[in-house]
Amino acid sequence: MENSTPEITGLESDSRREFLKHVLSGAATATVLMVYGPGVHGTSLRTGDSRIWKERSAEHQWTYVIDISKCIGCGACVRACKRENNVPDKLFRTWVERYVLTDKGVYVDSPNGALEGFEEVNAKIRGSALRTYFVPKMCNHCVDPPCIQVCPVGATYKDPEGFVLIDHEHCIGCAYCVQACPYQARFINPEIKKSDKCTWCYHRVKNGRLPACVEACPNRARLFGDMKDPESEVAKIFKEDKWMVLQPEMHTQPYCFYVSLPREVV
């Protein structure tokens, strides 16, 4: 006898099941890709792993060296940086500090970041001075930077050649990175309302030039070069192993190496 009821082939229920399976797995994949995908490429690698520097086939490994014994506190570097990078008033991508060690304590100052150099220190301090020196400071372009770790949207990242950079297309201006940096190298630029800092003059270096501060220094206290070039000054200084970094106990692995860095410098 003819079966008048339509045969339930299971197609309807099967295809609904299949559809749901596809939708759920697609949603799961999309979620995973959104979170771990290539969107935040530079920061999806663990920057704390120094093996990255040897494994990556980056052409250069840019390095900065500062020789404290050569800095004369003229402030030319601060002026050059301000002009080159349109750094807003009262904020600094680089600055110079003056330390005067006395038998009563440590006198440190940095008048307007040393933009106009330094005036004479007062007579009382001068009278009891034991040692004095100048310390240029800036972003250390660390290998394991806490600023990258804390950025909630991955706007700051480590370039394979060593620069720590900020993608201003994505920075939300929350200032978490400003809090996290132990060197106070970062700030919120009030003109663009986003995070900002020294970039080792990426735009100059990529065009075969030196950062503005290095070029402006009259006494070669600031050096910049490629660690991968064994003939470069920075590579030779690094190999001599007489350098120090700022706040080594923070374990950020800075890539600014200081020569003749006194103990008192923070």
């Binding site: 959104m34 979170v35 771990y36 969107g39 935040v40 920061t43 990258i148 770790q149 804390v150 950025c151 909630p152 949207v153 991955g154 994505h170 920075c171 939300i172 201006g173 929350c174 200032a175 978490y176 919120i188 663009i192 309302k193 986003k194 995070s195």
Partner: peptide
């Protein structure tokens, strides 16, 4: 936030090493 209109980026490109 300096850029509150980008706040939703925390949803679409969260950087998972950040507690925030």
């Amino acid at each position: 936030l300096g850029q509150p209109q980008r706040a939703f980026e925390i949803y679409i490109t969260p950087h998972t090493t950040s507690a925030m």
